[in-house]
């Protein structure tokens, strides 16, 4: 028979059974008193544990993937910056070279004495190259100088001395 006493009725109305008191969570949920049979849902009981794990992995991978993509896009930007800086550096060098070349051209054209000096230098080099090597390095008596000699006593003495020197070595 139903217990119709006042405490029992109050207990039923406000759901303060001993069982429910023991199962009530130490939660700050303000709806805890009105939740399902007075139990506070502390976990997602509507999804399987396996599905929950899959979601966790997927989320991690998504994070990793997004981080990777972000890093790749960062590298690309850095490469682009590097390439741009190299291109700008090359352009600066090119401009400097072109300007320098133009300056050199203008100097050469306007500075005629230098060109004359260079021309005479080139001529002397050409003459030297046409001279036999033994005549360039030989510092003794040349046949040309003897052929133009006018003092015959000196020429006789020169030949006598050198022949004597030659004969002394044989």
């Amino acid at each position: 028979m139903a217990n119709l006493s006042i405490p029992s009725i109050r207990e039923r109305l406000f759901n303060t059974s001993r069982h429910e008191q023991s199962t009530q969570r130490n939660s700050s949920n303000p709806f805890a008193a009105t939740s399902f049979k007075g139990n506070v849902l502390t976990a997602d009981v509507f999804e399987s544990s396996s599905k929950k794990n899959d979601n966790n992995i997927s989320a991690t991978e998504k994070l990793k993937a997004s981080a990777l993509v972000g890093s790749i896009s960062g590298y690309g930007e850095r490469f682009q910056n590097m390439i741009n800086s190299v291109i700008s550096f090359g352009n600066r060098v090119k401009e400097n070279v072109v300007n320098g070349w133009n300056k050199m051209n203008s100097i050469e054209i306007s500075f005629a004495p230098a060109r004359e000096v260079m021309g005479s230098f080139y001529g002397s080099i050409k003459d030297t190259l046409n001279t036999p090597v033994n005549e360039i390095f030989f510092t003794g008596i040349s046949a040309k100088s003897v052929s133009k000699m006018e003092d015959m006593s000196m020429a006789r003495q020169l030949l006598s001395d050198n022949v004597a020197m030659y004969e002394a070595m044989v």
Binding site: F138, G140, I141, A143, S145, S147, E150, M152, R156
Partner: peptide, 29 residues
């Protein structure tokens, strides 16, 4: 150097038009 000097002196005297060079070459050479 001595050999070259002697060669050049004899060649030079051979090219020299002075008639006295003949006697120099005959007497010494």
């Amino acid at each position: 150097k001595t050999a070259k000097n002697v060669t050049n002196i004899i060649e030079g005297l051979g090219m020299n038009s002075n008639p006295e060079t003949i006697s120099i070459l005959e007497d010494v050479g």
